[in-house]
């Protein structure tokens, strides 16, 4: 009885999470002019429309670049921060830890506004670099969290063992620490990438005419042009990219796990 209830609850949860996404993706393949569900047949018509619409295509390419760049920056900054603070104690490092995690709890819309004002104050920053900075800051906490956890799981004695075998700090990092924490660096980077790809709130303040991201473009497209199905195709492309990345990372890290703990 309880078991049946739990299964039903789990099923409902999955339905609520996955249902809407599935509807959007299936709809993206619809040949019809307007939303009909289920679609009578399948076509790539709306994907073609998406890539033929210049504003959407530009925004898409820009978003992917933005996500890639800010993901790299956030990963570098976040990993370095995690390495520096994860094992240390004392109020200085506790404070630093909180500061690095602050963007997680800070409303992104307020953050976007404050960043815009800050950029104005220092004399203006072009839109794209501004967006990279914003998304780097928003993505960093995910990397810090993921990497900190795995740095704490690395026995510091391994680094001493490495030093006892004549490896200097850099080689110890490259040959011992990094191989042990890189799965978490990759998963932190993945989060930063996905966050940037879908981020709307901060981007609202930092984009300008001609320099928009895909979420902004989708937003305004829906507001002013109402073409729902091309937007479904845009969403499907986004979901597709994320899925490919997640599967790739899972295989990468999963494989690594198999190598590391063969039973």
């Amino acid at each position: 009885m309880t078991r049946a209830l739990l299964i039903a609850l789990a099923g409902l949860s999955y339905l609520l999470v996955l249902g809407p996404i599935l509807i959007v993706i299936v709809t993206a393949f619809s040949p019809t002019e307007f939303f009909v569900f289920p679609p009578p047949s399948l076509s790539l018509r709306w994907f073609a429309a998406f890539f033929e619409t210049e504003s959407l295509r530009d925004a898409f390419v820009r978003s992917v670049w933005l996500a890639a760049l800010s993901c790299v920056c956030a990963t570098v900054v976040g990993t370095m921060a995690a390495l520096a603070i994860a094992r240390r104690r004392g109020w200085v490092f506790t404070t630093l830890q909180s500061l690095f995690l602050a963007p997680l709890i800070f409303p992104a819309i307020v953050f976007g506004l404050s960043l815009l004002l800050f950029f104005k104050l220092i004399g203006g920053v072009p839109e794209f670099p501004g967006l990279v900075i914003a998304h780097t800051i928003l993505g960093t906490p995910f990397v810090v969290r993921a990497v900190s956890a795995s740095v704490l799981a690395v026995d510091p004695v391994l680094e001493e063992a490495s030093a006892s075998l004549r490896a200097g700090p850099l080689r110890t990092f490259r040959l011992v620490t990094l191989p042990l924490i890189w799965p978490s660096i990759i998963s932190g980077a993945l989060f930063a990438f996905i966050l940037s790809l879908g981020e709307l709130n901060a981007a609202l303040f930092l984009t300008g005419p001609g320099v928009t991201t895909l979420p902004i473009e989708i937003f305004s497209y829906l507001q002013f042009q109402g073409g729902q199905l091309v937007i479904a195709a845009a969403s499907a492309v986004q979901v597709g990219i994320i899925l490919v990345l997640v599967v790739a990372v899972e295989r990468l890290i999963g494989l690594r796990r198999i190598v590391r703990s063969p039973s």
Partner: peptide, 10 residues
Amino acid sequence: VFQNFALFPH
């Protein structure tokens, strides 16, 4: 030689 051997697991 360390107390818990400290072998590199990877």
